[in-house]
Amino acid sequence: MEILFASAVGILTAAGIYLILRKRTFPVILGLSLLTYGVNLFLFATGRLMVNAPPVLNKYAEVPYTDPLPQALVLTAIVISFGMTAVVVMIALGAYLSAKDDHIDMVEDTKRAGDDA
C-alpha cells in the first residue's frame, strides 16, 4: 500500500508541477490544486499509514491509534489552501478582466504589444 500511496503522491506532484509551468492562469491554478493534494497527502503520510485506527479515543478497549498530529496540521492546510486558491483565482480573474489576457508572464505581454505595433 505504501508503494501505491507514494506513487500517487509522486504523480500528483509531477502533474501539478507540469501544469504550474504552463503559460496561462487557469492551468496554473489547476496545477496548484493538484500540487496541494500531493503536499497534503505527503504531510499526512509523515504520520505513517494505518488502516482502521482513527485517533478517536476508545473508552472501552485498548486499540491502536494512528498519529493525530499530522492530521490536525493537514486539516488546517486544507482549509488554508482553499483561501489561497481563492485569492489566486481572484487575482487571475482581475488580471484577465482588466487586460483581456490570461498569460502569467509579463515579458510576453510587452513582446506581444511590440508585435501588434
Partner: peptide, 22 residues
C-alpha cells in the same frame, strides 16, 4: 522540458515519502 522537470521532481517526492513511510 517541463515534463522532464515535473517527472524528476515527482519521482523525488514520491521516493522521499516512500522512504519515510517504510
Amino acid at each position: 522540458r517541463d515534463a522532464a522537470i515535473a517527472v524528476t521532481a515527482g519521482t523525488g517526492v514520491g521516493g522521499l515519502i516512500y522512504a519515510l513511510m517504510t
